Simulated assay, not measured.
Amino acid sequence: MTDHQPGYRTPARMFHWGVAAAVLLMIPAGLVMTQDGLSRSVQDTLFVFHKNLGTLLVPVILARLIYRLTHKPPPLPDTMPGWQRRIAGLSHVTLYGLLLVMPLSGFIRVRAGGFPIELLDLLGAGPWLAKSDPLADSAQLVHAVAAFLLILLLALHIGAALHHVLIRRDGIWSRIWPPRRR
């Protein structure tokens, strides 16, 4: 990346990497916690971790969306083909959408299923939803489909990032990676 090519501002980079780290912790926890054969204590610990990290992520994701809507990202390099620009834009919009669908569907699944969300309960938030097995089942399906799509899209996103940093070496990676101290 040349010195005149702008990168994302520090808050955008912090939102990106903070949410990325949390999501990359939640995915394996979410996949493992639903498996048969785990001890009850391990399964319970993973459920509590997953639900409460999701709860903490909601305000961060909303702040990230507000920041993104109020701060224009740096322009993509002129050398990037139009089809890649369109795919990058579509994938980012879809990632943001999935980052909203995942905690919402998880919340509905848990609360309509009659289960606690320990952090919200500690804050006295109340269940907000009546117990409803059909609603919980529908939310669980949405959560599972969205999780599959999120994992797929993250794999493509990470693959594209690695392609840009290792093969093309076109500065795309440098735009979001924390800046180097000079």
Rank of each mutant, 00 (worst) to 15 (best):
H143L: 15
G18M: 10
S132I: 08
E118V: 14
L120F: 08
R180V: 03
P116W: 09
H16W: 06
A112D: 08
R182N: 07
L90Y: 13
P77F: 00
F15M: 09
S132R: 09
A88F: 05
D121F: 07
A155V: 10
R109K: 04
W128N: 14
R86H: 08
A22H: 00
R169T: 08
L104P: 02
M26C: 07
L46Y: 01
D137T: 15
G54T: 05
V23D: 03
G126V: 04
F115M: 15
V142L: 12
V23Q: 00
R182K: 14
L153D: 01
L104D: 02
E118M: 15
L149G: 05
D78F: 11
L98T: 04
P77N: 00
H50P: 02
T10E: 04
L100S: 05
R169Q: 12
L99Y: 04
M80S: 05
W173A: 10
P74K: 06
V19Y: 09
L53D: 04
G114P: 13
R111A: 07
L135R: 06
L56N: 09
R175Q: 05
A63P: 08
D44W: 12
I167R: 12
F47C: 03
A125G: 06
F49Q: 02
L95E: 02
M80R: 11
T79W: 14
S91W: 07
L149H: 05
G114A: 10
L154T: 09
Y96S: 05
S138C: 06
R40D: 12
S174T: 02
H157L: 02
D133G: 06
R13M: 10
P81D: 07
A63W: 12
G37N: 05
Q140V: 07
L129M: 14
H71V: 10
I87Y: 10
Y67L: 11
L153A: 07
V32L: 15
A63H: 05
E118A: 10
A144K: 15
Q84R: 13
A125W: 12
Q140S: 15
R40F: 12
W128L: 14
H164L: 13
I27N: 03
N52T: 01
S39R: 10
P28V: 10
L69N: 09
K72N: 09
M14E: 09
G124E: 03
D137E: 15
I66C: 07
P59E: 12
M80I: 11
E118T: 09
W177Y: 08
H16A: 09
S132Q: 08
